[in-house]
Design a protein around this nucleic acid. Structure first.
Lengths: 158, 158
DNA sequence: AGATATTGTTTGAAGTTCAAACTTTATTGG
DNA sequence: CCAATAAAGTTTGAACTTCAAACAATATCT
């Protein structure tokens, strides 16, 4: 492997985990709540899917890439902890919408802030050119892993 | 957040998990062994630390960012499955070296190949400039998360 | 030699995830 | 219309990962 490929590989193998751990520690310091990363990400997905009123169990499980069964388990504890409520669809009674409570909204905002600060810190170390190219390159990586990318970002119209 | 910051954020939040899942599925197809990602990464760390004869439990646990207790548990099952043996240091009898067996070497090679192919595929979608900048930018991200980076890569001498 | 530090193990608990069996509700083909 | 099938979600039992805390053995330092 060339040096830059090694760099990329190292990032995927090592830095990945560092980032997760970093986030975990940051979350622990975010007093007043004892949510794990998975739980935070579940809430994140709820807010994300809510924008299009697609915050049903099935949609959220698929957004998270976990099975419905796993989601049910996670939702149960978040419901018990007071971060979510479930609401039956009146048209299709098989369907449940997951609704975040005010405290979930608060925690989600904190989490968003944390992410923004992290990104800002990272970007602060990059030149403008590097920042732009990084975004484009990551968009392509993302495409490689089968995700949709907003076409403007993909073409570099940032 | 600007578009490119959003791109970076999305990568950290979503693409991360996609990559892990992708790898997991690839490992499952790698017949003849039923090792989890964690186990593969443990083996990887054993090989990595072995280069400098630092393949002791404590070193490997710290390389993986897990506690010694967690490592002990993992090692026990890898020992039972025949991927590792433990060897006492003759000078310091508290210390154990973890030694991979031939089958572990085989699996690790396969895993390395998989990573190389993945990286090649990603890089194939990038222009030379993008590839170079990506490596530099990731090096800086890595630095931000408190890792050492080879100085040549850091300065862009790639 | 006694106190302290280091290396590693054990134990008990919590969290995450899955597959498979199951329930309830919706849709569809005859 | 109704029987069969599909879809949405839940439950259960199991595996895996991880941790903190208590513990044991060995090494080092004063």
């Amino acid at each position: 492997m060339t040096k830059d490929k090694e760099q990329l590989n190292h990032f995927l193998v090592v830095t990945f985990n560092d980032i997760l751990r970093y986030e975990e520690r940051a979350l622990e310091r975010l007093a007043n709540n004892r949510l794990s990363i998975s739980e935070i990400h579940l809430l994140e997905a709820v807010f994300e899917t809510m924008k299009k009123k697609e915050n049903t169990s099935t949609n959220i499980a698929s957004a998270l890439g976990i099975t419905l069964g796993s989601l049910t388990t996670a939702v149960k504890t978040l419901e018990r902890k007071g971060y979510l409520i479930r609401e039956r669809d009146q048209n299709d009674k098989r369907v449940f919408y997951l609704i975040p409570t005010p405290i979930a909204t608060f925690v989600n905002k904190k989490h968003e802030q944390f992410h923004e600060e992290m990104i800002d810190n990272i970007v602060a170390n990059l030149s403008f050119e590097e920042e732009k190219t990084l975004a484009i390159a990551l968009g392509k990586v993302q495409t490689y892993f089968g995700e949709e990318v907003s076409s403007s970002a993909q073409k570099g119209k940032i």
